[in-house]
């Protein structure tokens, strides 16, 4: 497991402050306040893949709130708006968004509003409203908001962004667990599972675990062949279809 005090300069400063003002033994304690892991670090998309639930579990020192964020592969997308032109619905305006996560999941042990950590949550992009979705060329501020809302709604409809926050449940004082749903249409690529420990409105420590969603087996072989050898893939597709058509006509000749 990698412990990454990546979160913010302020958080690091506060940890450092504790280290120096108290003693080394306490510093050891701080380092061990959060440990977490996933039930699997690889989601293999096999031909019969219909989605999967991963278990994220860990321990804390018994105080504070736990927030879990899973983010998927980032890519650029364009949102287009339809308007009625001469009776027909036509795409008119478009806004491009850079670095949009293809998947986002959120779990916490209680509602985020009750944690009094708005600034910290916003900085770490925790919660869908805090997601930084940068418009490349938004015409105006209001239209940017409308396009951003539409983007979020679109992803929520595909179950790739959360509508509600998932529960993190504590088993006893220290042990916590949560279940994360990955639907059948989950995009492939690198993911990160981030766990934050929040006390008194501050992110005390955080931990990032890598996670990958990859095609596997026959599907992966087909996908790789299609992208690495497109000419041979195209030829195979044509020959295969011709053979199938010929075979069927021979098969049915006598019927």
């Amino acid at each position: 497991m990698i412990l990454i005090p990546r979160y913010s300069a302020r958080a690091i400063a506060s940890i450092m402050g504790m280290v120096f003002t108290v003693n080394v033994a306490v510093a050891q304690d701080v380092a061990e306040t959060l440990v977490a892991d996933l039930s699997s670090h690889l989601i293999a998309i096999t031909p019969d893949f219909t989605g999967v639930d991963l278990l994220l579990f860990g321990t804390t020192d018994g105080t504070g709130d736990v927030v879990v964020v899973i983010r998927g592969p980032h890519s650029d997308v364009v949102m287009r708006r339809k308007e009625r032109v001469a009776g027909v619905w036509v795409h008119t305006d478009a806004v491009e968004f850079a670095g949009v996560p293809g998947y986002y999941a959120l779990a916490a042990n209680r509602p985020l509003e009750q944690m009094n950590a708005e600034a910290e949550l916003a900085f770490a992009q925790i919660g869908v409203p805090n997601l930084r979705l940068d418009a490349v060329d938004a015409p105006t501020e209001t239209s940017h908001a409308a396009f951003r809302d539409a983007l979020v709604k679109n992803m929520q409809r595909k179950q790739l962004y959360p509508v509600d926050i998932q529960p993190v449940t504590f088993v006893g004082e220290r042990l916590f667990r949560t279940s994360i749903r990955f639907p059948a249409n989950v995009p492939t690529g690198p993911y990160s599972a981030e766990v934050y420990l929040i006390k008194d409105g501050q992110v005390v420590t955080s931990e990032i675990t890598p996670l990958a969603v990859r095609k596997s087996g026959f599907g992966a072989a087909v996908f790789l062949h299609a992208h690495r050898h497109p000419a041979s893939y195209g030829a195979v597709a044509v020959v295969f279809a011709l053979a199938a058509g010929w075979f069927a006509s021979v098969l049915f000749r006598k019927v």
Binding site: V222, A231, A237
Partner: peptide, 22 residues
């Protein structure tokens, strides 16, 4: 067209095509 789409866009799904053509 199949060849051009496969070559330029990698948008020919051979598994989907096989099931449909069956």
């Amino acid at each position: 067209a199949t060849f051009l789409h496969a070559y330029n866009n990698q948008t020919v799904d051979i598994v989907l095509a096989a099931l449909l053509l069956l």
